[in-house]
């Protein structure tokens, strides 16, 4: 499967995202996206986890929510698990 890490994913002209993390979990590809501006020069502080579906060569992305999100995030970003268990460590992480 092509590695989509650090590529730009475009839903339309005003809806573009940058792939921060990508992993195949249970046969499905999940991506962690941060929004980028229209000219793809800078980041906008929005983040989402999406799941890819394929139809032939076309790729579709669907937003992940709820329980699935809670299961996926620790797998997509394994480093998060420690902080999920000990959220008080987040402040320290930010101050680093």
């Amino acid at each position: 499967m092509e590695n989509g890490l650090h590529t730009v994913v475009e839903f339309d002209e005003n809806d573009k995202w940058f792939v921060l993390a990508e992993k195949v979990i249970d046969g499905f590809k999940y991506s962690y996206l941060v929004r980028v501006n229209q000219t793809e020069d800078d980041f906008i502080d929005e983040y989402q986890v999406v799941k890819s579906y394929f139809d032939g060569k076309d790729e579709y992305m669907d937003v992940v929510n709820g329980d699935e999100l809670k299961q996926i995030v620790p797998l997509l970003v394994p480093e998060a698990k420690e902080y999920i268990d000990h959220p008080e460590r987040l402040k320290q992480l930010l101050n680093d």
Binding site: L20, Y32, L76, V77, P87
Partner: peptide, 13 residues
């Protein structure tokens, strides 16, 4: 960028 991912991910969870 894992820090951002971690932070956001933890919070939502």
């Amino acid at each position: 960028w894992t820090k951002v991912a971690i932070v956001a991910g933890v919070i939502v969870i």
